[in-house]
Design a protein around this nucleic acid. Structure first.
Lengths: 227, 227
DNA sequence: GTCTATACAAAGATAGAC
DNA sequence: GTCTATCTTTGTATAGAC
């Protein structure tokens, strides 16, 4: 059941997430980036669909028609929000995996990176989770890169989990894919309740998560058997 | 940091989720329930907003106007979807906690129930996660019960986690609230990829989750220290 | 780069006949 | 319980002036 499949090319090259700003009408600019940021916050708060171009324009202090000087559609805006996040995430993952001494160190790094992206990319991650199904359901292949990026990320995680199982650092009696999903989900969903200035900072979060993940919640005291 | 706070009233009585079918126009009926089910699937696939009343009617083989014989608005439909799920969930939780011998057994039960609701309530759980922010952002207090239900569920889990820490079954050096969120999120998010006829059934899922949660991913071999 | 004005489509909801 | 027909609102997007 446990696949032994470790190779050294941590930075897998298949299916990169590129071709930024597919539907741009104007050149790259700070103004434009600012608008994207404003829109991202609204998308995160109310959902992509529920956010109207009028609201985005309002937030920026301009009229809705003026938005179309910068973007050719509302989809283009959310596209840019998600692309920016995914590119940054994958770049960080690659860099971390290049340095990691072993599987445990690698996994710790990946978890840590995940929690640390929560703060700078909170809005994008929220949109990604809430509107994934909808964006994927749109006609055309515009958002196919979401799946490509997801696959690439999965490959990186799975490699480390399998590596750890093969080397004996991780228990071999857990399903690698299931474990990957469990970890991934547990990190990203934190965006629902994580607030930058709150009780826990991202370091504390990552630390807690890694601790429970690696060593478990139980003590030696097993009064009952697992159900 | 670790609060010691166990009491025996597992079935906390504050803020129940009741008052079913708030915006009903007709009497309860199988026909009506069927329409709710169809709508729930569409809401889950495309999102609440992106699903039009025309699509729901199409799916049922009637015209959109006819829907308003059964429901007075689209919101009423999603309301019923979510209420049904939450009532069932909380009832199951209460029943399980009434029997549980100790904290570890209780937590196992709660986890197990979570995964077992995935199959019958897949659509509702998906809607709950994806459209939570939007529904909460609507004017009025119509969806306030979502938060009340969330609070009640949190109380049940936290009680068991704290009980386990006090009794020595769970390690005392983890934050109870953070742990609760970690577990809760990890379970519900599984609706994203869980498919009823797939490789793993809900039993296998629950079992895997409980194993990793209680005992951790690591073996004794600590080549590296946690980051 | 923004505004005014407006086209055009889609969506939620209603009234009354059958 | 469903259909036909329609109202009203809202939302994306465009054209051209400033």
């Amino acid at each position: 059941m446990v696949g032994v499949n470790q190779r050294k090319n941590s930075g897998a090259t298949a299916a990169p997430v590129r071709a930024k700003r597919a539907g741009a009408t104007g050149p790259a600019s700070e103004r434009r980036d600012h608008l994207v940021k404003l829109a991202a916050e609204l998308f995160a708060r109310k959902g992509f669909q529920a956010t109207t171009v009028r609201e985005i324009a309002d937030e920026a202090g301009i009229l809705s028609g003026s938005l179309y000087h910068h973007f050719d559609s509302k989809e283009t805006i959310v596209d840019e929000v998600l692309r920016t996040f995914l590119e940054d995430l994958i770049a960080r993952y690659r860099a971390a995996l290049a340095d990691a001494a072993d599987a445990r160190a690698a996994l710790s790094q990946l978890v840590s990176i995940g929690f640390h992206t929560l703060e700078p990319h909170r809005a994008a991650i929220t949109v990604m989770q809430n509107d994934w199904n909808y964006l994927r359901s749109l006609p055309g292949d515009r958002f196919d890169y979401l799946v490509r990026a997801e696959d690439e990320v999965e490959r990186m995680w799975m490699e480390q989990i399998r590596r750890g199982q093969a080397s004996g650092q991780f228990r071999a009696d857990v399903d690698p894919k299931l474990t990957y999903r469990m970890i991934r989900d547990g990190i990203w969903v934190a965006v629902r309740w994580f607030r930058p200035g709150g009780r826990l900072d991202t370091d504390a979060l990552a630390d807690h998560y890694i601790r429970v993940l690696f060593d478990g919640l139980a003590t030696g005291d097993r009064t009952t058997q697992p159900a």
